[in-house]
């Protein structure tokens, strides 16, 4: 899994506005752990619908930071949960997503 940030999109739209990019990265560090916490809680409650919704929610954020492989994983969780919420792999993938995300945070810190 490639967990390296690609800030091309943010740099392009902001023409390298460091203040804006830092704000986005800081927001990621504040918001993403909360979303992952909710996903974790949904896994515990066996609520795959909520797992799918949380995957949907983080998807666009992952795209903004160029984390395309993680985004594909989130998309797979979302779509599978929508098509068959009893699918045995949903929670496994979601746990993977949470674990990968923990490894992304240091990369974000380093980019600040």
């Amino acid at each position: 899994m490639n967990l390296a940030l690609d800030l091309t999109y943010l740099n392009t739209i902001s023409e390298g506005d460091k203040e804006f990019i830092n704000d986005i990265l800081n927001t990621f560090l504040e918001e993403m752990p909360k979303d992952m916490e909710q996903m974790s809680s949904a896994i515990e409650k066996n609520d795959n619908v909520l797992v799918g919704k949380m995957a949907h929610k983080v998807k666009a954020t992952l795209h903004l930071l160029g984390l395309e492989e993680l985004k594909s994983l989130a998309l797979k969780i979302e779509q599978t949960a929508k098509e068959n919420q009893e699918h045995p792999e949903i929670q496994h993938w979601a746990k993977d997503l949470i674990a990968y995300m923990d490894k992304v945070y240091p990369n974000i810190q380093a980019a600040l």
């Binding site: 739209i13 918001e31 929610k57 903004l64």
Partner: peptide, 13 residues
């Protein structure tokens, strides 16, 4: 938009 990061990006643009 419930995704704050995405909302901030759109707002910036």
């Amino acid at each position: 938009e419930d995704d704050l990061l995405f909302a901030k990006t759109i707002r910036y643009i």
